[in-house]
Design a protein around this nucleic acid. Sequence first.
DNA 1: CTCCAGGGATGAT
DNA 2: ATCATCCATGGA
Length: 296
Amino acid sequence: MKSFEIAATDFDLALTLDSGQTFHWESSGAGFVGTIGERAIRVEQCGGMLKVREGGTPSPAGESSTLPGAVAHYFSLDHPLKEICASFPNDPAMQAAVAFCHGLRIMRQPHWECLATFITSSMKQVAHIRQMSHALRQSYGRGAMLHGSHVYAFPTAQRLARCTEDELRECALGYRAKNLLATARLVSSGEVNLEALARLRDDELHAQLCALPGVGPKVANCVMLFAYERLRAFPIDVWIERVLREKYFPRRRKLSARKLCEFSAQHFGKHGGYAQQYLFHHARKTTPRRLSPRAR
DNA sequence: CTCCAGGGATGAT
DNA sequence: ATCATCCATGGA
């Protein structure tokens, strides 16, 4: 059981983990428990420091990197956040989002874990995506012990490829099960090499990801941004589309999705993905939830 | 009960 | 090339 601290300035752990880019970290007292790849981790922020503990069974393959290095890499503590924010356009919506999201970093997630999770994300709220992620992990992921409780890694493509569609449906995936299974088999067979895709240019990577079952432009951009460190990638979901239309094109009818995509690509610059994440999280956390029918 | 969610695949214009 | 429809599931 290893334990240590690392410095983390301009970083807000809770904000980052709650921003809708990863879906498996759970609160544990003042900290969080989850996995970084195959490693079971507890991490707690104390000012500018991260207290980290690694739990349970070491991974069978053995991790090549040191744990402090893996944590710093996973949370992208090396990203120059001030420079990134300074590159954003200077408009009111963006300023409000930046003020709201201080310390939010775009993480570097494992390729397969991120791809598989976002395949399950279509037409699902964040809470539902978390449920599906946990179900897949508990059913098919490798378990480890941490603080006397079980922590599960995300299942490998090889493991999911051996499942039936019905088995995946038991994790409440619905129609997404078919796509996840098909993509898992492509990755498992080696027909698609997710690590090799990292060498491609942005447009080529986007095209290759969109060729996978269950992956369209939006999911491809999420995977590019959250797993391949393509900080220009700008996923447009229902929230961001709403923000763009309301804040950047008020009372303009007939604005195609194509035009919104072109606008966001040119307006938000080389770190557009960061800008997108700030706008997304700000909108999601400040938009009042609809009253329940019962309350009215 | 209804409405909607970090969409994508498919088939019709 | 754009547009409509369907797809399962569960919170609010």
